[in-house]
Measured scan of single mutants.
Amino acid sequence: MSIQHFRVALIPFFAAFCLPVFAHPETLVKVKDAEDQLGARVGYIELDLNSGKILESFRPEERFPMMSTFKVLLCGAVLSRVDAGQEQLGRRIHYSQNDLVEYSPVTEKHLTDGMTVRELCSAAITMSDNTAANLLLTTIGGPKELTAFLHNMGDHVTRLDRWEPELNEAIPNDERDTTMPAAMATTLRKLLTGELLTLASRQQLIDWMEADKVAGPLLRSALPAGWFIADKSGAGERGSRGIIAALGPDGKPSRIVVIYTTGSQATMDERNRQIAEIGASLIKHW
Rank of each mutant, 00 (worst) to 15 (best):
H24R: 09
E26Y: 13
D33L: 09
D33M: 07
D33I: 10
A34D: 02
Q37N: 06
R41K: 05
R41L: 12
Y44R: 00
L47H: 03
D48E: 05
L49Y: 13
G52A: 13
I54G: 04
I54M: 15
F64H: 01
T69H: 15
T69C: 05
T69Q: 00
F70Y: 13
K71Y: 00
K71I: 01
V72K: 04
G76H: 02
A77Y: 12
V78F: 05
Q86C: 06
E87W: 08
E87G: 05
L89K: 04
I93E: 04
I93T: 05
H94A: 08
Y95E: 02
S96N: 11
S96P: 11
Q97A: 11
N98G: 06
V101Y: 10
P105H: 08
E108S: 15
H110K: 09
L111A: 06
L111P: 09
T112P: 13
T116Y: 05
S122G: 13
A123E: 04
A124C: 15
D129E: 03
N130R: 02
A132E: 02
A132C: 03
L136R: 02
T139K: 14
T139A: 14
I140Y: 08
I140N: 05
G141V: 05
K144N: 11
T147L: 09
T147W: 05
A148K: 07
A148T: 09
A148Q: 10
N152L: 14
M153L: 08
M153P: 01
G154Q: 07
R159D: 03
L160R: 01
L160W: 00
W163E: 08
W163Q: 09
W163D: 09
E164P: 00
I171M: 14
P172A: 14
N173K: 12
D174E: 10
D174P: 01
D177S: 02
A182Q: 13
A183E: 08
T187N: 06
L192G: 01
L192S: 05
E195V: 05
R202Q: 15
Q203R: 06
L205R: 01
L205M: 09
L205Y: 00
D207L: 10
W208K: 02
M209W: 03
K213Y: 05
L218F: 03
L219D: 04
L223F: 05
A225H: 08
G226Y: 15
F228N: 12
I229R: 00
A230W: 03
A230Y: 02
K232C: 01
G234Y: 02
E237H: 14
R238I: 15
S240P: 01
R241L: 04
A246T: 07
L247Y: 04
D250I: 07
G251I: 08
I256V: 14
I256N: 00
V258A: 06
I259H: 00
Y260C: 05
G263R: 13
A266K: 06
T267K: 06
T267A: 08
M268D: 10
M268P: 10
E270F: 05
I275C: 05
A276P: 02
S281E: 08
I283M: 12
I283G: 05
K284A: 11
